[in-house]
Design a protein around this nucleic acid. Structure first.
Lengths: 229, 229
DNA sequence: AACGAGATTTGATCGATATCAAAAGGCAGG
DNA sequence: CCTGCCTTTTGATATCGATCAAATCTCGTT
């Protein structure tokens, strides 16, 4: 690849401890591409040919069934996806597409498995990555099964704010249709739920969200470290 | 431990390829206990002290929040649980209890991590186990978000039958309350949904379920290998 | 065999979420 | 700055699933 910033890739927990030589081998066989907004990257059911690294931009991971589609995750840079399918040499379970113009590193699955077998630090990082992803998915499942739509939205606002530095104010980086799907509700209900949150300390306009009364919001959200992370 | 059947434990994918010596070390520090029905094994939020292996019996993994409880998985022998929390040296995200009298092997987390570091085959098995568990959880999440209750029940019946040999007939091994929770519905709605399935080729009485018309059931269920596995 | 506790089913109703329809708002291209 | 398309919001309604209540069933115990 001829990207200027693979220092950031190298710095990923997944790669940061591995042998320089092995990292170079991974990179040698890899492609780095720019994709436009809404480009399809991965189709669920295909055999896992690549490990993906989102270097810059935004990627949606989603699942489809019987004409339906649901957003499972929205990935931010820098991070990898499709690791589990690659390691098990199996099909992808999630589809992926860009939500904005994005720079994507694609590492051939075979190369990943090969280096995994010979680089102990890389193998260890893979274990940690898989365990963490697993736990995130367990949290997501608990959230869907134990909370209603309004509560999921309230907690998403609290988490997103915290993740962005706790300024009590942030902007959506993707459209509300996708957020609704991520949260497991329709766009119509997301809109209505945002309106309801006005009574619980949240003011929103367009893509801006302001937490005016954190304690009121938390009282509704009932955040739980075993769900929200 | 002084159980007669740790040949079955040794045969688990997680342990079958590791060094004899290391397996012995794992076993040396472990406890093997019999627990009665409905014994609490694990409480979510506690730090992960043990890797659990269900040798015999039945175990429910569940999550709780705000006075609610939801079944996340029902484990059958022989299998392990709490691996991700143990490897990451973090808190449990799921609680666990027995659903029938069960024999449980408890391996101290520290020992697991220690052997993980020095036994390559064990580390490899852990990678595969974590990846597979991750994928199962992704499937569960897709199921909840992409199907309604009736469809989840229909597919659960198809999967359970297949897993038990495809006899088109099987018995529930745990109560309907737990099944309802596993499937993300109330016991009342499970009962009603079972009644609805009469019109789609399923006859049920008590704990017995018979698939009288597989194609009618499949037409309703729309099974999907990327959800049902 | 009768009893009683808990599980399951059934019926009635409530509430949450989805759907359908239409209006309003935002934004890019001309 | 207007136009037209797409997103979002709002309102009305329908559907699904939850809740409440009561009847029935199951099964272990006496």
């Amino acid at each position: 690849m001829r990207s200027p910033d693979w220092i950031t890739v190298r710095a990923l927990p997944l790669f940061c401890d591995m042998e320089e030589e092995h990292f170079d081998q991974l990179i040698d066989g890899a492609f780095c591409h720019r994709f436009p907004k809404y480009a399809n990257l991965v189709t669920e059911g295909d055999t896992a040919d690549f490990l993906y690294v989102l270097v810059d931009g935004l990627v949606e991971l989603y699942g489809t069934h019987d004409g339906q589609k649901t957003t499972l995750d929205v990935m931010q840079p820098v991070g990898s996806f499709t690791l589990a399918a690659v390691i098990r040499d199996d099909v992808y379970l999630k589809s992926a597409r860009t939500l904005m113009p994005s720079q994507i590193l694609m590492i051939p699955a075979q190369t990943v498995r090969q280096i995994y077998r010979c680089d102990h630090a890389f193998a260890d990082a893979i274990v940690n990555e898989l365990a963490e992803r697993y736990r995130c998915t367990v949290r997501a499942l608990k959230s869907v099964k134990l909370r209603n739509g309004l509560e999921r939205l309230a907690n998403w606002i609290l988490c997103t704010d915290e993740q962005q530095g706790g300024q009590r104010s942030f902007e959506l980086t993707f459209d509300k249709r996708t957020l609704a799907s991520r949260l497991g509700m329709t766009p119509e209900n997301l809109s209505r739920n945002l309106a309801v949150l006005t009574k619980h300390g949240v003011r929103s306009a367009g893509r801006g969200i302001v937490i005016e009364n954190p304690s009121a919001l938390m009282q509704l959200a009932k955040p739980n470290s075993l769900i929200d992370g």
